[in-house]
C-alpha cells in the first residue's frame, strides 16, 4: 500500500547497507534525485542493478556506495565513458567494484521473470558471446519439447526498486508515460520500492485504457520530487539535458573535480534543488 513521504524518509525506511538495489529508467525517467539521497545518507556495500549504469550509478560508484554492479551497458550515452565506473573497474578507486555483466536481452528477460515470480529467465541469447564464459550466472537449458539449447539467467528480484514517474494520483497509483523501460518489472519484482514523481494529481486525466500504471497496492513509498529525473527527462515535463551529459564527461574525468561537484550539488544539496530543472522546461 503506497504511502506519501519525503524522499529522505523513504530512503531511510527501505534501504540498508548491503541491499540489492535496482534504480531503473531506460535513458528516460532515471531517478537521479533519489540517487543523490542515497549518497547523502552514505549507504555502503550496495549491489547496484541497472541495465545502463549511466551518470546515476557513476555518482554512486565514485562515492564508494557500491560493492557490486549488475549491468549490461556501462557508458555515458552518446558521449563516451563513465569515468568513475572505469576508475573503479580498472584501478579499484575509491573501492574495488565486483561486476556481473550481461546483455540487455538477458537483463530485460531477468526483470520480466522477476515480476512474474519465476526463479530464472529463459531466452535465445549469448550464442557465441564470450560473456557466457566470464559470467558464471549465465547458464543454458535444453527445451523439453524441441531440445533447442537456450540461455538462462537468474531473475532480478531486488531488495529495493527505485524509479521515477510522471504522476501519482491521490490514492497512490503511479502513471508512467513514454519510454517505460523495465520500471514496472523492477518494482513488481522487488521486495520494497520507492517511486519519485513529478506531481500528485487528484485523478489521472487523458490516459488511454492501456496506460502503464502501477496500482497503489504494488508500490511502497512515493515522494514528490519535481525535476527528479534530471539530467535525464520526464516525457511531457522536460527534455533530456544532453549538454549535461557532455559536461559530466569533463567533471567526472578527474577524481577531485568529481568530488567537488558531488560536495556542492549533492552533499550540500537536496531534492528541492531539482525543481528548477522542471521549471526550466
Amino acid at each position: 500500500m503506497s504511502e506519501f513521504v519525503l524522499l529522505s524518509e523513504a530512503v531511510e525506511a527501505v534501504m540498508s547497507d548491503g541491499d540489492a538495489v535496482a534504480m531503473e529508467g531506460f535513458t528516460h525517467l532515471i531517478p537521479h534525485a533519489a540517487g543523490h539521497e542515497v549518497i547523502r545518507q552514505g549507504r555502503r556495500d550496495l549491489t547496484l542493478i541497472r541495465m545502463t549504469p549511466d551518470i546515476i550509478y557513476d555518482q554512486l560508484i565514485g562515492m564508494g556506495c557500491a560493492a557490486r554492479l549488475v549491468f549490461s551497458w556501462g557508458g555515458n550515452p552518446g558521449v563516451g565513458s563513465l569515468h568513475r565506473f572505469r576508475d573503479a573497474v580498472e584501478r579499484d578507486w575509491p573501492i574495488p567494484l565486483e561486476i556481473e555483466e550481461h546483455s540487455h536481452a538477458a537483463m530485460a528477460n531477468a526483470y520480466d521473470a522477476g515480476a512474474a515470480g519465476l526463479p530464472f529467465a529463459v531466452f535465445r541469447g549469448y550464442r557465441g558471446a564470450e560473456l557466457a564464459q566470464v559470467n558464471p550466472a549465465i547458464k543454458s537449458i535444453t527445451c523439453p519439447y524441441t531440445e533447442e539449447k537456450l540461455a538462462c539467467v537468474p531473475s532480478i528480484r531486488a531488495d529495493v526498486a527505485v524509479v521515477h514517474a510522471q504522476k501519482a494520483n491521490a490514492r497512490g497509483d503511479v502513471l508512467f508515460e513514454g519510454i517505460v523501460g523495465v520500471q514496472k518489472e523492477a518494482v513488481l519484482g522487488a521486495k520494497r520500492s520507492i517511486v519519485t514523481v513529478e506531481e500528485i494529481v487528484d485523478e489521472f486525466e487523458g490516459t488511454g485504457p492501456n496506460a502503464v500504471i502501477l496500482p497503489h497496492w504494488t508500490v511502497g513509498y512515493i515522494a514528490v520530487v519535481p525535476g527528479g529525473a534530471h539530467p535525464s527527462y520526464a516525457h511531457g515535463y522536460y527534455t533530456r539535458d544532453n549538454g549535461f551529459y557532455k559536461m559530466w564527461d569533463e567533471v567526472s574525468r578527474d577524481r577531485d573535480s568529481f568530488r567537488a561537484w558531488i560536495k556542492q550539488h549533492v552533499l550540500e544539496g537536496g531534492p528541492q534543488d531539482f525543481a528548477r530543472h522542471a521549471a526550466a522546461a
Partner: peptide
C-alpha cells in the same frame, strides 16, 4: 576481461542483435 587496460561500455543489445 578480469584486468582490463581499457574498460569499454560493454555489449548492451548487441550480442542478441548480432544473432
Amino acid at each position: 576481461y578480469g584486468d582490463p587496460k581499457v574498460r569499454l561500455p560493454g555489449g548492451g543489445g548487441a550480442p542478441e542483435i548480432a544473432t
